[in-house]
Simulated assay, not measured.
Amino acid sequence: MDEPSPTTDPLTNQFGSLNDLAHDLASLQDLAMRGSWRSILDQVSRARSLALLSNPHDHLIYLSYNVLALTKLRRFTDASADLDSLHDFSSNHYKYESYPQLYPSRSGSMVPFSLRFIHAQLPFKLGNRQQGLDRFYLLLSFIRQKIEQKGSNSFQESAKIWRKRENFVLHCLIGHHLGAKEFNVCLDLIRDLIDHDYLDPVLISKLGYIQMQVGDIVGAKGSFHRVEAMLNEGYSSLSEVEFRNLVNRNKALVYLVGKDYVSAVREYEECIERDHTDVVAVNNKALCLMYLRDLSDSIKVLENSLERVPTVALNETLVINLCSMYELAYVNHSETKRTLSNWIGRVAPDDFDASCTRV
């Protein structure tokens, strides 16, 4: 929900549990954590058919999970149709003050932020990039209005949440522009934030990455050094392990550009030693080993990661890379890939695209 009451914490004062906040919400959250998206669709359908959703915000929360599940299952047209049923997020129908007897101490919109985000993201999935960009910029404007409304109360928890949402949406926007190689737009978005003292090591690292894309290696090194200085100054937006791994991955990128794969591997190994769930480091270490023509060890790195933390390591990019290595290393790679595909079928969440194994 977008706007908590300034005087009431809905999770502590108003409700005893998640299930008080919305019908059987704890069960939905558990299913989402496990990637059981089909079960979520079944549960939402059942709740709707049995009229178990009694309050307006119940319907919105269940709609959010339904749309998220449909999106995860790549049923984008169905997700869009379900989302379009809301018509206008700003409607009084979705404001707490329209139901004073149900929500006596609350005001503002009850539309979950997740719905607003999916509303912006869906057009990209449906092939309408410009509509998606328009919606993302409208969402960014909406978020900044909320931040401006907080004014001098910028240290309140709700203000911090909106700042995090601004950061998240900007990262998504930068990603979409980056995918279209619109580097100047990305640089403008990032520099605007940095000029306003919005110091985020991940964002500055992304600035360095984009500078590398446009051939500004000196600028990229400067950005990466800035991130390392933030670590040494005790900047605490990330955990120490996350921060140190970010610094190592940045160093590895510089080595990769110089085709110094041995040094890049060393940086990625430091990351993995600190956190074996760092999938970016695992994947990139394997690729570096492949570039060094050590295909056997490259395969072992990815296989060991999948075996050690399948719920974390099981992503489509890693699996695609592993299958490509199988194709290079083995004559009868089809059988090896089939074994991998069968294993994925047993452990993967509902939204994993098994076709990435190319069996």
Results as ranks from 00 to 15, higher is better:
His176Asp: 06
Lys251Gly: 06
Asp353His: 12
Ser341Leu: 11
Val309Met: 07
Glu97Met: 04
Tyr209Gly: 09
Val265Gln: 10
Val279Glu: 09
Ser105Gly: 02
Phe76Pro: 00
Phe224Cys: 11
Arg274Trp: 01
Ile320Pro: 03
Thr277Asn: 13
Glu228Gln: 11
Asn13Arg: 15
Leu21Gln: 15
Ile299Gln: 00
Val319Gly: 10
Ser39Ile: 02
Tyr209Val: 12
Asp9Leu: 07
Leu138Met: 09
Gly127Pro: 01
Asp200Thr: 03
Trp162Met: 07
Leu115Glu: 04
Asn19Glu: 15
Leu52Val: 01
Asp30Phe: 06
Leu173His: 06
Val265Thr: 12
Ala22Met: 11
Gln14Glu: 14
His57Phe: 02
Val347Leu: 14
Ala51Thr: 05
Ala354Pro: 02
Leu318Trp: 08
Leu133Ala: 08
Lys160Tyr: 07
Arg46Met: 10
Asn283Gln: 07
Lys164Trp: 05
Pro112Leu: 12
Ser90Glu: 12
Val282Glu: 07
Asn304Asp: 15
Glu233Cys: 13
Arg38Cys: 03
Leu133Trp: 00
Phe76Ser: 11
Val319Thr: 11
Arg274Leu: 03
Cys288Asp: 13
Glu267Ser: 13
Phe136Val: 01
Ser17His: 12
Ser114Asn: 08
Asn153Thr: 04
Thr339Gln: 15
Lys259Leu: 14
Ala348Phe: 09
Lys146Gln: 13
Val227Phe: 00
Ser141Arg: 06
Ala329Thr: 12
Val280Met: 12
Thr317Ile: 12
Phe89Arg: 06
Gln130Ile: 02
Leu41Tyr: 06
Arg308Cys: 11
His87Pro: 01
Leu189Gln: 05
Gln121Asn: 06
Pro123Phe: 09
Leu28Trp: 03
Tyr326Ala: 15
Tyr99Val: 06
Val257Ser: 11
Arg135Ala: 05
Gln156Asn: 14
Tyr326Trp: 14
Asp88Val: 00
Ser85Leu: 01
Met110Leu: 04
Lys221His: 10
Ala47Tyr: 13
Ser39Thr: 03
His59Phe: 00
Leu238Pro: 01
Ser341Asn: 13
Asp2Ile: 05
Glu233Lys: 14
Gly179Trp: 04
Leu63Phe: 00
Ser239Tyr: 05
Thr339Asp: 15
Met290Cys: 08
Thr336Arg: 15
Leu170Lys: 00
Asp195Pro: 01
Ser237Lys: 00
Leu203Gln: 05
Glu270Lys: 15
Gly222Pro: 08
Ala220Asp: 07
Leu50Ile: 00
Val202Leu: 08
Lys150Gly: 02
His23Ser: 12
Glu316Gly: 05
Gly16Pro: 02
Ala79Glu: 09
Leu83Arg: 04
Glu166Ala: 03
Leu83Val: 04
His23Thr: 11
Arg75Tyr: 04
Asn19His: 08
Ala348Thr: 08
Val254Lys: 12
His57Asn: 09
Asn153Gln: 11
Glu316Pro: 02
Tyr62Lys: 03
Lys164Tyr: 03
His93Val: 02
Val169Glu: 01
Phe89Glu: 01
Asp9Ser: 10
